[in-house]
């Protein structure tokens, strides 16, 4: 009977193990908040220094793709939350389907993001490689786009990790849903939602400024 050795010896019970794992994920998320925090401080500092350039640069981003990606991520988060709810032996196929939906949406996000990147390349908006902007605002705009590319690339990296994670979880769930996998799915879902939250703020910082002028 594998259930006897289902949890490592430092734990008292499998529930103890699962709660510990979730706590670990929360600590990891706190770390991640500060990882993006450094970038966000830089963003605010330069937005304060170059308000006009930031507004102008922001207008050059593609709000349609940005908003679509936000909707996509919010929906994928919704699907993942549903998948956590649907995790049980009876409904495991629904759970897998929901996860697959989230994976597809996640990949769509990345694809749209790369389309956006290539558009920006064509518009000469990549600092250091090929940057061409209204001469008067070029400094602030470069700083904006450095922030933009670093932040969104880092976020996209998180997305890819998340997609891989969801794929593994979907496979495990499909094969044999156990309480161990429920905990794993739970932690994976926390991570996915966190990546979603990061994007909510990036969206507000990158796409929205300067639209009204």
């Amino acid at each position: 009977m594998p259930e006897a050795k289902a949890f490592a010896s430092q734990f008292v019970s499998s529930q103890h193990r699962d709660e510990t794992a979730e706590l670990g994920m929360w600590v990891f998320i706190a770390t991640e908040v500060l990882l993006f925090g450094g970038l966000i401080l830089g963003y605010f500092v330069y937005r304060h220094a170059y308000p006009a350039a930031f507004a102008a640069a922001s207008r050059h981003t593609d709000i349609v793709i940005g908003a679509a990606n936000t909707a996509i991520l919010l929906t994928s988060s919704f699907l993942v939350a549903c998948a956590v709810d649907a995790f049980s032996a009876e409904t495991r196929k629904i759970c897998v389907a929901l996860l697959s939906g989230a994976i597809v949406l996640g990949l769509t996000f990345v694809v749209l993001k790369s389309i956006e990147y290539s558009d920006e390349y064509r518009e000469h908006l990549i600092p250091g490689i090929d940057f061409n902007f209204d001469a008067a605002l070029t400094n602030g705009a470069q700083l904006f786009f450095v922030f933009y590319f670093v932040a969104t690339a880092l976020h996209a990296l998180h997305m890819l990790v998340g997609v891989a994670l969801l794929a593994v979880l979907a496979t495990l769930t499909y094969r044999l849903p156990s309480s161990r996998h429920r905990a794993a799915l739970h932690s994976g879902a926390l991570y996915w939602h966190f990546v979603d939250v990061v994007w909510i703020f990036l969206f507000a910082l990158i796409y929205l400024p300067g639209r009204s002028s």
Partner: peptide, 14 residues
């Protein structure tokens, strides 16, 4: 360790 190190990581990336 958990709350300060990531800021260094980001700075080094920059």
């Amino acid at each position: 360790l958990v709350l300060a190190t990531p800021v260094l990581a980001m700075t080094l990336v920059l």
